[in-house]
Design a protein around this nucleic acid. Structure first.
Lengths: 415, 415
DNA sequence: GCGCTGCCTGTAAGCGCATACATCACCCTG
DNA sequence: CAGGGTGATGTATGCGCTTACAGGCAGCGC
C-alpha cells in the first residue's frame, strides 16, 4: 500500500506516521515540545476511535504547525517563522531545508495566529448597508444579473483592486439582521482598517472602533471629524442636472422626490436642486415634493403615482434622489400611460448599470464608485503608515449623464 | 476638564487612568494579571515620551481586552468571554455588569484571538483570477463603471449574500503578482472554507489546502475529485447557441474562436460547437478556428481581423468562447467596415453586463453567476457542518440570450 | 591570542480569547 | 443535617505564531 503522499487517509494511521505527523503518542519526540495541542491531533491513534469518515474521503489530518515544520527540518520554530516573515535573515541552506519540510507537510501559516502575534491582519474591510431590492432581484432572476449590480458592487471592485495593489485582501460584509453588533465583531476584529458606507454602523460604534483602527467613511457627511472621509459632489451634481432640465429642455414645473430624511446624500441632492431653482427664479421648495425610501423601485413607483394623483397639472420633470426610485417610476409611468420623456422628464442619481438598461435610458448623475473604493483604500493604507496624519476629507466629482429619459434623445453610441 | 468619554486623548494621561486603562505602571493592580502586554500599552505614561500626535487627533489608546473588561467589571476573563459566546450561561446581572464595562472601555473582541482559540473564523473566502482588462478599463474611465463589471463581480455578490444569510463574512482576493503563494497565505489562513475559480490556484496547492479546510471549485473541470465542485453547462450552452445560428439563421460557414488551450471552459464550449456542427452535418473542426486569450477585448479584435485576413470567403458567423473577446471583435469588425449581423453574425458566452450594452447587443449564453456564488456558499456551509459528506458536483444550467448580434433583431424590451 | 563584531539561530515570552475542569454557593431530598 | 445535584463563576492552559533577547561561532584587527 504505497499511497501517494497526497492521499494519506485517516483510516491508515501508519501513513500518518510516514508523513511524520504523528506526534500524539510519542510526545515528546526529539525536541521537547512545550505544547499539548498534539494530544488532540491525530485523534484516531489516541483514542482508538475514529470519526465517521466516509469511504474514500481524504482524511483531514491535523493542521501542521511551525512546530512540525521545525521538528522535521531540524531547526527552531523561530527560524521557521523567519523563513516566512523575513527570508533574508536566514541562511539560504537553512531556508531551503525549512521550505522543503513545509512543503512535505503541507504546512501553511495560520492567519489567526499570525494576526494575534503580530497585531496585523493584511486585510482591509468594507461594511455596507444591504441595498438589496427585491424588485430588481426579481427582474434579475429571469433576466440578467447585471440588473442587480448596485452601488456597493462597484465600490467593492474598486477596493479589491486597490487593496490588492497594496498587498491586502478585502473582507466585505453587509449589515446583518443581527444588528450592527455582529457586523462590528465580524469585521472590526479581523481587519487592519476598513471603509464604511454611510448609515451602516451607528456613529457611536464607529467612534469606538476608530479608536482602534483606521476607518474611512464613504458617501454621506463627515459624521466624525477625526476620520478620513470621502464623499461625492451630490449638491453640485444635482444642481447641474437641474440646470440642464431648466436651461436645455425649458422645463419649469419640476418635482423632486427625496429619500429618507436621514439620508444626507438625498438631502444634499435636494440642496442642489433648490440651488438651481433659485438661480432660475423658480419656486424654491423647502421640502422635497415627496419623500420615499431609496431602497426599492416599488417606492419610486409609488412616488410617481402619488405625483400623478395630486390633481392639478403634473410636473414637467421629476428628479429622483436616486436611480432605483427613478427606474421604479419609469415602470409606473408607463403603466399609467404617461410617456417619458414626452409627457414628463425623469432623472435619477448614481449611474447604476440598470439606469442604462431601462427604456427609456435614464438620465442620471454618475458617481465614480469604483474610484470611491480605490481612494478609500489609499486613505486607509496611508493612515496605517502614519496614524498621526491629518484626517482628510475628499470630495469626488460627479458627471451628468444625459440619456433619453430627460429628452436628450439618442444616447451617444457606446464603444 | 471634563472630557466626554469618547475623546480620551493620549496627551491626557489622567484621562487614561479615569478610563481605567492605565495598567502600565501599576501592574499588578487588583487581580494578578498573568500578562505583560500591558507594558507596551499606554506608552505615553511609561516612557514619558509620546508619539507624534497631531493636534486634535483623538489618541488611539491601547486596545482593551477581556482582561480589562474583567477587571473593570469585577469578574474573571472566562465570564467575559462567556458573555459574548454564550450569554445564557451567565447570570443576567453579571452579564449586564460586563457589557456595561465593555461599553465604557470600547471593548470589542479580537477576531484573531477568537479564531486562534476556537479554530474558526466566521469568514468564507473567494479566490479568483485577475480578469482585469485594460481595454474595458479604459472604456470605463470616461464612461461607465458597469462596463467593467465582470464575471467575478457577480459571483462575489452571490457569495456575499449567501454568506451573510449564514452568518459569515466574505474575504475576497484576486490572484496576486506575488504568485499563488501569497494568495494562499492571505486567504487560506483566514477563512473557514473558500471557493476558487478555476485556474486561480495550482491544483497541487489546492490539494494541500483542502486537507485543512473545505474548498469548492467553481467553473472548470473537477480537478480534484474529493472536492465539492460547481460548473456551468458550457457544452450544452454552446451547442444550443450553435444550433440557433444554424437552424434559425441558416448559417453554415461558422468559425469558433477558442481560448487558451488550458481553459477547460473554452474547450467545453468548443465541444458544444462541434456537437452542433456534427448534428447539422457541417464540417466538424478538430481545433478552434483561432485561439486567443480570453482576458482582453484586444485579443478578440485581433482574432476577428485574423479571420478577415485569411483569404477566401469569410465565415457567416463567428462564435467566441467568451463575451470579452466578442466585444473586442465587434469593435474590430466595425472599424473594418464589416456589418454585424448583416455581414457576419457574432456571439459570445458569459452574459456579462457589457454584452448588453454594446451595439449591436451581443447574443450570448448567460451563466447564472450569482447563483454560482450562492451555491458555492451553500456547499461550503454544508461541508462545514459535516466534513464527511459525499463530495458533490453540480452543473448549473445556462440560457441562450438572443440579441442583435446574431440577427435576432430587437432585443426584448427590458423592464 | 584575545576581545570584538556580525551573522545566524535558538529560547522564551507573550498576543487575546475559549474552554475543560475545578470550585463554590445554594437548594433539595430524605 | 448529610449527601448530592445544579448553576454560576474562576483557574489554568493552549491555540500557532512573532519577536526581543541571548547565545554561538567565525572572521577580524591589533
Amino acid at each position: 500500500m504505497d499511497a501517494p503522499r497526497s492521499s494519506v487517509t485517516r483510516s491508515d494511521p501508519e501513513a500518518v506516521d510516514r508523513a511524520g505527523w504523528n506526534r500524539a503518542c510519542l510526545l515528546p519526540r526529539e525536541l521537547p515540545r512545550p505544547r499539548v495541542n498534539a494530544l488532540s491531533n491525530t485523534y484516531a491513534t489516541v483514542t482508538g476511535l475514529r470519526p465517521p469518515v466516509h469511504e474514500g474521503m481524504v482524511g483531514r489530518l491535523s493542521t501542521p504547525t511551525v512546530y512540525d515544520v521545525a521538528e522535521r527540518s531540524g531547526v527552531s520554530i523561530a527560524t521557521v517563522s523567519r523563513v516566512y516573515r523575513n527570508p533574508d535573515s536566514v541562511r539560504a541552506q537553512t531556508r531551503d531545508k525549512v521550505l522543503h519540510a513545509a512543503r512535505e507537510l503541507g504546512y501553511f501559516p495560520s492567519g489567526n495566529a499570525r494576526g494575534l502575534a503580530s497585531r496585523t491582519t493584511g486585510v482591509l474591510g468594507l461594511c455596507f448597508p444591504d441595498y438589496a431590492d427585491p424588485d430588481a432581484e426579481a427582474d434579475g432572476a429571469d433576466g440578467d444579473d447585471s440588473a442587480v449590480m448596485l452601488y456597493s458592487d462597484q465600490i467593492i471592485r474598486g477596493m479589491e483592486r486597490a487593496a490588492r495593489r497594496h498587498g491586502y485582501a478585502l473582507l466585505i460584509a453587509a449589515s446583518l439582521e443581527g444588528g450592527p453588533q455582529t457586523l462590528v465583531e465580524q469585521v472590526a476584529g479581523r481587519v487592519d482598517g476598513f471603509a464604511v458606507l454611510a448609515r451602516t454602523i451607528p456613529t457611536e460604534d464607529l467612534e469606538i472602533i476608530s479608536r482602534r483602527l483606521p476607518v474611512v467613511m464613504l458617501a454621506g457627511p463627515r459624521e466624525i471629524d477625526h476620520l478620513d472621509h470621502i464623499e461625492v459632489a451630490n449638491f453640485d451634481g444635482e444642481r447641474e442636472l437641474t440646470r440642464h432640465l431648466i436651461a436645455d429642455h425649458g422645463l419649469r414645473r419640476l418635482a423632486f422626490v427625496g429619500g429618507e430624511i436621514d439620508s444626507p446624500d438625498a438631502e444634499a441632492r435636494f440642496g442642489g436642486f433648490r440651488a438651481a431653482c433659485q438661480e432660475a427664479d423658480l419656486p424654491v421648495p423647502d421640502e422635497p415634493t415627496i419623500r420615499a425610501s431609496m431602497m426599492t423601485q416599488a417606492e419610486g413607483a409609488r412616488a410617481a403615482e402619488a405625483l400623478l394623483d395630486r390633481g392639478g397639472a403634473h410636473p414637467q420633470g421629476v428628479l429622483f434622489a436616486n436611480d432605483q426610485m427613478a427606474v421604479g417610476a419609469l415602470h409606473a409611468l408607463e403603466s399609467r400611460g404617461v410617456r417619458v420623456p414626452r409627457d414628463i422628464a425623469v432623472t435619477g442619481f448614481d449611474g447604476i448599470p440598470l439606469s442604462r438598461i431601462v427604456r427609456p435610458a435614464l438620465t442620471t448623475v454618475r458617481q465614480p464608485m469604483r474610484r470611491l473604493g480605490e481612494e478609500a483604500v489609499d486613505l486607509l493604507v496611508r493612515r496605517l503608515g502614519d496614524r498621526s496624519r491629518e484626517p482628510v476629507s475628499l470630495m469626488l466629482p460627479v458627471s451628468v449623464t444625459r440619456r433619453a429619459s430627460c429628452g436628450c434623445v439618442g444616447e451617444a453610441r457606446q464603444l
